[in-house]
Computed example of a mutant assay.
Amino acid sequence: MSEKKRVLFLCTGNSCRSQMAEGFAKTLGTDPSVEIMSAGLDAQGLNPMAIKVMQEDGVDISSQESTTVTEEMVASASLIITLCDHADANCPATPATAERRHWPIADPAQVSGSDAEVLAAFRDARDEIKDYVFGLVNDLRSGEEF
């Protein structure tokens, strides 16, 4: 039996993008032998707007927790996916046993403007993340190793 695979979604604050990726990965049917985690370089709490736009898409992330990445999380990961340039540049060293990918998603929490403009930015980030996660899930189902 092979060792359990662990996917770590990493962002700056673990409040929006990595939380959405974790929610989609758990909901879209990754193999039970794959553990899904998310963390931030500095946990900033779960963003209510991220919860809202995920609920619009039928995914409840309200019980997920914002956590700060630890060396143990990085060391145990089979695949580390950064979702912002800051996390990509400042991620702790990736162990030789892990693959690393970068999904450059704009931070919807940094958008200013009307409520409608901010909501649109969160929806755009959600939809882009969903596309990436669909690709990841399909890779896992087709037996792609990482």
Rank of each mutant, 00 (worst) to 15 (best):
I129F: 01
N47C: 12
V7Y: 03
L10K: 07
E56S: 06
N14I: 14
I80Y: 01
D124Y: 00
Q55A: 15
S38W: 03
G40P: 08
A75N: 14
D107G: 10
A77K: 07
D42F: 12
L136D: 13
G45F: 07
F122R: 00
I51K: 07
M49F: 08
A96T: 05
S63V: 09
F9D: 06
E3L: 11
F24Q: 06
V133H: 06
A75W: 00
A98I: 10
N138I: 09
S114K: 09
C16K: 01
K5W: 00
T70M: 03
D57M: 11
I105R: 00
L8Y: 02
L136W: 08
Y132H: 15
F9Y: 11
L79G: 02
V74H: 09
T68R: 01
C11T: 15
C91Y: 01
G40C: 10
V74S: 10
E65N: 11
D57V: 08
E65D: 04
T82S: 12
A96C: 00
E35D: 12
N14Q: 12
T97G: 05
A50Q: 09
G58K: 12
D57Y: 01
T68I: 08
D85T: 14
E117I: 03
N47V: 12
S63Q: 13
D31C: 07
S63H: 09
M54N: 02
I105C: 00
D31G: 04
C16Y: 04
E117G: 03
G13L: 07
T68N: 07
